[in-house]
Design a protein around this nucleic acid. Structure first.
Lengths: 344, 344
DNA sequence: CTGAAAGCGCTTACAG
DNA sequence: CTGAAAGCGCTTACAG
């Protein structure tokens, strides 16, 4: 079995070089002959040797680590973000250091401290919470010279941030349906009381105004129930069935709720899209698998992730005091079978 | 603004102590007065100071890091595992270092190298791949004195491993239905051709033999299609509808496939559980939200995660050469509305 | 281009 | 109980 190599010193001894030449070859900073560099690189590959991140970090060299802080890993979209960010960072030679705060403010502060002590080169706050703790985190990071970017912040963040343009998404959905002739809209679970709901509601109102539709959309929601899941959709559909006059276009907070609405209304004998048109949100696998297939809004997660990694890259170059404008990502409408002109 | 403290030396200066006393107080190894220890602890809390992991690691002290290697983050179950493992490890004072291999063998080897260079104290291989690369990973880790445990390995692993007892789960499901009088079974997407499918198939066969049922279960599957999703379930249901004689009990590979089967058969006018009984697997949120609510098998993820963290803890104490027996976790049957006696 | 020193933050010996 | 040295693996100055 091949002897394993554990340090630059061992590698140098093995190659008959000085430790310093080896270090220079690894870091490619010049001051060493091309032949030596090639020899060192080859040996690293052969023995699977990577210089100790601890040694490098201590000496003040860049650690190559990026702290990624998530609130929760509870939606497929967040998970897709993780996957893309991981891939994009490693392509740039960074190592992601994932941590989860589980909505706990104190855990969040611990996570930031850990990032600082690990000397990460930058931090990505994904699904950044809306509360004031974020300001404290940013202050801590800035004090240590570590740049941070927000991805999909829930609260209002005015710089160094990337998010899907939800307002635009809803405006487009609404405009699409208005152009088909729809005049009576219902919002299933999209309530202006939640921060992200407000943004989406604004988009609907903007498009209705532009289409000169004065009938306000009907807002369906249940107090004190988390607006998620098939069952929630079914419950909202029941609210709708109790109405004397039905809306012809239903915009759901997400695909699962949309599927629940669909299921319940179909059971009541209504036809989609004959009697009503339906839009989901998120473009989950589920949306493609209902009958009729759901129209929905894709998050463009790949683009969001790329923009976030890009933004952080710029901040790392510019330093922790840089302030870059908010990046809004274009939503992508997916029109499937659940959409048609309203019934006459 | 309070001055921030960055090293044990600064902390010592600030408290008028020697750096060494501070280090001893932090590590609680004795050789320092209780008063000094308390004073140091209080100051750490006040300034939010944590000693540099890089410094500790370099000096040979334990790093407190545990490498967690995942294949993919594609199922809710895997994600629940991540969450529980993270919580349990931090409760023990460890820091999880998450990495994803994305089914790529070379990426996997890189991940293991990274763990080694980070001097993790142990490694958890979650959803361990079935291929030979795992042996290589284990060899690399052992060579560096790092213990590793497998969680839910897909291939056969005979030691230091924790997994749900899938065979037992299917045996219980089958026995439950047999006791209700069912004699004709169908397996939706559970095929003995896949490693985990074989294990589950064995469980069914064992229970059928015990119930003296000689009619072999009908295996529904589609070649070259990944057995997942509502649509797959609907397609399997169509195979079933084409049969002249229908089974009365359907066991699905997971809840999504079960929901697809349910949807399609209901559409064809069949009644669940009047005409057929249906079992899912995974206990996803979805299973509770169909009508009728699906019976299913819960993974006991919390217990799996606890057993895994426990096993790794033991291995860390015993050293990397220890061999502990495989831990099988009891499945938990969730019986809901989709189960009844077969039609007469 | 190459060699040797200094020092990052820490802990583990070893003296007192 | 406390002090001071040595050294983990590395890179960045500084000499040659």
């Amino acid at each position: 079995m091949k002897k394993s190599i554990q340090s630059t010193a061992e590698l140098a001894r093995h190659l008959g070089l000085s430790r310093w030449s080896v270090s220079r070859a690894i870091n490619g900073q010049g001051g060493v002959s091309a032949g030596t560099t090639a020899q060192v690189r080859a040996a690293m590959e052969e023995y699977g040797f990577t210089p100790s991140p601890h040694g490098r970090a201590l000496r003040g060299h860049r650690t190559g680590a990026i702290g990624i802080c998530f609130r929760e890993l509870d939606t497929p979209i967040t998970i897709q973000k993780v996957a893309h960010i991981q891939r994009l960072l490693s392509r740039r030679g960074f190592r992601p250091l994932f941590e989860f705060t589980e909505l706990d403010q104190r855990m969040g502060t611990d996570v930031i401290r850990h990032f600082i002590s690990m000397r990460v080169e930058g931090v990505l706050l994904v699904d950044t919470p809306p509360g004031p703790e974020v300001n404290e985190w940013q202050r801590m990071l800035k004090q240590h010279g570590i740049p941070a970017a927000s991805v999909e912040p829930v609260g209002p963040i005015t710089q160094n941030s990337v998010h899907l343009d939800r307002e635009e998404a809803m405006a487009r959905v609404t405009a699409h349906l208005a152009a088909l002739g729809h005049r009576r809209f219902a919002l299933a679970g999209i309530s202006p009381e939640y921060p992200l709901g407000r943004v989406r509601h604004n988009g609907v109102m903007r498009a209705l105004a532009a289409a000169k539709i004065s009938t306000a959309p009907e807002i369906l929601s249940l107090p004190n129930v988390r607006p998620a899941g098939l069952r929630y959709g079914r419950q909202l559909a029941e609210l709708l069935l109790a109405r004397s006059r039905q809306p012809t276009a239903i915009l759901a907070i997400n695909d699962e709720v949309a599927a629940g609405v669909l299921w319940r209304l179909q059971r009541a004998g209504l036809n989609c899209p004959g009697d009503f048109s339906l839009f989901g949100f998120d473009n989950l696998a589920l949306s493609e698998q209902t009958t009729p297939a759901l129209s929905t809004v894709d998050h463009n997660v790949e683009v969001v992730a790329a923009a976030a990694v890009d933004l952080l890259g710029q901040l790392i170059e510019l330093g922790p005091n840089a302030k870059l404008p908010v990046v809004k990502i274009e939503p992508h409408l997916i029109v499937r079978e659940s959409i048609a002109a309203p019934p006459r």
